[in-house]
């Protein structure tokens, strides 16, 4: 366990105190900027009513599902592209064409096809977060030392064993980096898609509190998104440590 960073925590508390003081003293008077204490009260209300939990659960579920699909697709494509020059020759042009396309530009298309639904949210997420997994897997596989390929051949490993016992474990660090980047992208895309395309989850909650002119509640959801990002990343770091320790 890491120790609590005391000085860092102090800084945060200080910022909150200044914010609170600035609003209470009337030094800062934006009509819709709530004080930290008001946000705290709103969080308590939303926690008790179960709204916060429900919206968070939706977003976690969507992110994990979309990210898992994107990771499987990205990993498979990345492996094929990294392993086979033929696959690269056929696919590289199409991929280079699709890759720079910002995932969010895809949202209207997804909306048209899937309507306001979870499918729309997933489609946008998967389209955006498949890239980091794919690119990092491909790069990882391609940069496996040529010596390991020699080893696989002279020990007469089958192609399947070469991939699962040698290439994937050797490329594991960059595959994991790809998956981590993919998870971050998936969360961002999920929030945007919920704001615009799928009326559920934390992204939707932020927008609907905005429209309801409830800034305290809106801030609660914004903070919840931040904590969710932190938690997902921490969980993945722990999981990847475990995976690296037990590779192939």
């Amino acid at each position: 366990m890491r120790q609590l960073n005391l000085s860092g925590t102090l800084t945060i508390l200080l910022v909150l105190a200044v914010w609170e003081a600035a609003i209470r003293s009337g030094l800062v008077t934006y009509e819709y900027l709530p004080a930290p204490s008001a946000i705290l009260v709103a969080s308590w209300t939303l926690l008790r009513s179960g709204e916060l939990a429900a919206q968070t659960l939706h977003t976690i579920g969507a992110v994990l599902l979309g990210w898992a699909i994107a990771s499987v697709v990205g990993l498979s494509l990345g492996l094929a592209l990294g392993y086979s020059r033929t696959v690269r020759t056929y696919l590289e042009a199409s991929l280079e064409l699709l890759r720079p396309l910002p995932g969010i530009a895809f949202l209207p298309v997804a909306l048209l096809i899937f309507n306001f639904s979870l499918s729309t949210e997933l489609a946008v997420m998967i389209f955006a977060s498949v890239w980091p997994v794919l690119i990092n897997t491909m790069g990882g596989i391609m940069s496996v030392a040529t010596r390991l390929h020699d080893v696989a051949r002279t020990l007469r490993l089958t192609p399947a064993r070469t991939v699962t016992r040698l290439l994937i474990p050797a490329a594991a660090p960059s595959i994991i980096v790809g998956c981590r980047l993919g998870l971050g992208t998936a969360l961002v895309m999920a929030i945007i898609a919920e704001m615009l395309g799928n009326p559920h989850g934390l992204g939707y909650a932020v927008v609907s509190e905005l429209q309801a002119m409830q800034p305290e509640r809106m801030f609660v959801y914004v903070l919840a998104i931040g904590f969710l990002a932190l938690a997902l990343n921490a969980a993945l770091v722990a999981a990847s440590r475990l995976m690296l320790r037990n590779r192939g």
Binding site: A145, R147, R153, R156, P169
Partner: peptide, 22 residues
């Protein structure tokens, strides 16, 4: 044509030839 059964190569650069995670 391919590495035959019964003949195996040992390379100079052992650190690259070994699987560091095993």
């Amino acid at each position: 044509a391919e590495p035959p059964e019964g003949a195996v190569v040992v390379f100079q650069d052992y650190s690259h030839a070994l699987l560091q995670w095993r």
